Computed example of a mutant assay.
Amino acid sequence: MSASNPVVWFEIYTDDLARARAFYEAVLDVTMEPLPMPGDMDGFQMLAFPASMDNPGAGGTLCKMEGVSPGMGGTLVYFNCADCAIEAGRVEAAGGKLHQAKMSIGDYGNIALAFDTEGNMFGLHSMG
């Protein structure tokens, strides 16, 4: 493995792409855009989170694909925030469920944990 951060891409699977899009746009205060599929990938749709190839961190998408279900599966994605309490405060109004309010993780900052409208758990991280 190289010396860079290990995560370069993420995909969050959903049963209802429009519902998941509305949830993440409301909680993270972003606008997501459709990501065109290369080649023949019938039944696979993606909506991209805002990202820049020039900045550190991983880009990713919401995905809908036949035969792949969302939910608890062992992978947890953390979104970077200035203050994770702000985004955590938007979760329930957007249709999700807050699992853990902002809490300290010592020298590593703070986290909050929530479930999206599809049953996926995700994290919010901030240094402040």
Rank of each mutant, 00 (worst) to 15 (best):
M1T: 14
M1K: 12
E11T: 11
T14K: 06
T14I: 09
D15A: 12
D15E: 14
D16W: 14
R21P: 02
F23I: 13
F23Q: 06
Y24I: 07
A26C: 09
A26V: 08
V27E: 04
L28P: 10
L28T: 13
V30A: 01
T31E: 11
P34A: 10
P36C: 10
M37Q: 13
P38C: 12
F44P: 06
M46N: 04
A48M: 13
A48D: 12
S52H: 10
M53W: 14
M53L: 14
D54I: 12
D54H: 15
N55P: 03
N55D: 15
P56Y: 05
P56C: 06
G57T: 13
A58Q: 05
G59L: 01
T61L: 03
T61A: 08
L62P: 01
M65P: 02
P70A: 05
G71V: 00
G73Q: 01
G73W: 01
Y78I: 00
F79W: 01
C81P: 02
A82N: 10
A88Y: 00
V91I: 05
E92C: 03
A93H: 08
G95P: 01
L98D: 03
K102N: 01
S104R: 06
S104Y: 04
D107I: 08
G109Q: 03
A114E: 04
F115N: 02
E118C: 05
F122I: 00
G123N: 04
H125R: 09
